[in-house]
Design a binder for these strands. Structure first.
Length: 202
DNA sequence: TGCCGGATCCTG
DNA sequence: AGGATCCGGCAA
């Protein structure tokens, strides 16, 4: 895709793991209410795939909180975790297929004062909270731009972080990051899958 | 209605 | 290692 192109709905209407991988290297743009535009290059994502994925909030069924995950692709799902931190997801796949990609970390490009490694910090740095749930991520003030495609060899994958409660699903290598990028979060070892699937393999 | 625990992060 | 601190989902 041409550099600078805004990612449209068709980008997000695809297989969630594919979207998670291809979001790496794209640029998250936030046109702040104050008129300042912040830009962050996405370096780490996770896929949450369908109603059977026990790591996904949607595995509990359709509720007020998860309703947006069952809706059309390309909309934001922001939830509050541990009473402190907001986490930004982008809904993927078809209507009634609850799936999303968690944006876990980014590299500050422009007008970003705070750290953006880690899903909570990213939202904190940009000022994104649950009010953004339902926002159409193909439009201002919050959207994504394509950049040059990454070399596949620069993409690594491994188990998702902090989902040990999800049994077998915790071992799926649905976390993606850019190799050797300093803005990729480094999770505590106890949070890596069930301890039997080492990250690093593509 | 009450309780349990979380897709996290900071401090010590 | 432990705490902060809100709220969703489930059991009662």
């Amino acid at each position: 895709m041409e550099s600078g192109t805004v990612l449209d709905r068709t980008f997000f209407e695809r297989d969630t793991v594919t979207v998670a991988r291809e979001l790496l290297g794209t640029v998250l743009v936030f046109e702040r209410p104050a008129g300042v535009t912040s830009r962050v290059r996405i370096v780490e994502t996770e896929a949450y795939v369908g109603p059977n994925d026990r790591a996904s909030h949607a595995s509990r069924g359709r509720t007020r909180r998860t309703e947006v995950m069952f809706g059309p692709a390309g909309h934001a799902y922001v939830f509050l975790i541990y009473g402190f931190h907001n986490c930004l997801n982008i809904v993927t796949e078809d209507i009634n297929m609850p799936a999303a990609v968690l944006i876990r970390g980014g590299e500050p490009l422009q007008n970003v004062e705070k750290r953006t490694d880690g899903p909570g910090r990213l939202c904190q740095a940009l000022g994104i909270d649950r009010q953004f749930t339902g926002h159409d991520i193909t439009m201002p003030p919050l959207y994504l731009q394509a950049e040059c495609d990454l070399d596949p060899l620069d993409i690594e994958s491994g188990p998702r972080v902090g989902v040990a409660y999800a049994g077998e699903w915790a071992t799926r290598p649905w976390r993606f990051w850019i190799r050797d990028n300093p803005w990729v979060s480094r999770p505590p070892r106890r949070n890596i899958g069930r301890g039997d699937a080492s990250p690093g393999a593509v």
